[in-house]
Amino acid sequence: MGFANQLVRCLPVWPVYLLGALPGPWLFYLGLTGGLGVEPIKALEHEYGELALQLLILTLAISPLRRLLGLNLLKFRRAIGLLCFFYVLCHLLVWLVLDVQILGQILTDIAKRPYITIGMGAFVLMLPLALTSNNLSVRKLGRTWSRLHRLTYAAAVLGAVHFVMLAKGFQIEPLIYLGLVLFLLALRVPYSRWLRLPSGTPVSGRS
């Protein structure tokens, strides 16, 4: 991993923002020009949502990768997290503006339809995370910052459950996403809990 980590150290972060954001306008362009099929609104909504979920899973993978495999991608985590929020926002806007269109119905949907309530819940949890993803907030909030950013765990579970709930019939793909989220969260539970070791046994720190 030494070589990989050295390589990562040399790489700048800005291309991650650039390359990561490109699918946003590109998918929109495809939707406009027929590249997303005959029902581009649903397709675009789904593409943005799925990208957001993939990026969310990636942010959750970063600390286990470092702890278990020694691969340090920490410098990219903020970029990936903010990109995730960007796609959640795109997903939400497509739903609001292009899909449902009717304000009254949007409010009823949020209140009455559990999968939408849960999706909105994930979005609301992510708002403070996006707003505090900057150096100033990290400095000002200190230890509160890392505690605050554990909201990612809840947002990830809600996001994956949102996907599972909107599937018709028994579908595998959303369950794989939920499984990945739960697996990555399980890796964070200290070993002592798994092994029922007495408390006080030294374990590697969680993040």
């Binding site: 939707g31 406009l32 005959v38 609104i41 269109q101 009717i102 119905q105 339809r113 999968y115 909107l166």
Partner: peptide, 20 residues
């Protein structure tokens, strides 16, 4: 439908800005 309203629909073929 318990998960969405059936009051309106979108006709396929209207593109990205199709109205309900």
């Amino acid at each position: 439908h318990p998960r969405w309203s059936q009051a309106s629909e979108r006709r396929i073929g209207g593109g990205l800005f199709a109205r309900r």
